[in-house]
Amino acid sequence: MDWMAWTWQTATFFAIIAATLVTFTVLAIKYPETPRMGILRMETTRGDRLFITLLGSAFINLAWLGLLSNPQWGALIVCFAYALAVFRWV
């Protein structure tokens, strides 16, 4: 991990991001989809929903860190619920 100056935590983070991108690329090739109109009244594809999930999760984590003194894994639970909601309704 020295070649990118990673610790195991940062390496895990990048691995998860990379794995997510690869998974969604494979999904997009194997199961092409049609954009759909969600509750935000805009057309989204799976990739859009992933982007909204990741960006939103970053803000949820920051808000959790800045506003609450609870342990950070609580934010991950919120993010998970948020991700499910985005993929279901947006």
Partner: peptide, 30 residues
């Protein structure tokens, strides 16, 4: 990716890094 490295890690030089968790974010948010 380098910026992410710096944001979550700390170093005392010599290109050796250790995990700093969310300390820098906490510091910045406050």
């Amino acid at each position: 990716m380098t910026v992410v490295n710096y944001a979550f890690q700390d170093t005392f030089g010599n290109n050796k890094f250790f995990w700093a968790g969310l300390d820098w974010f906490q510091e910045m948010l406050e």
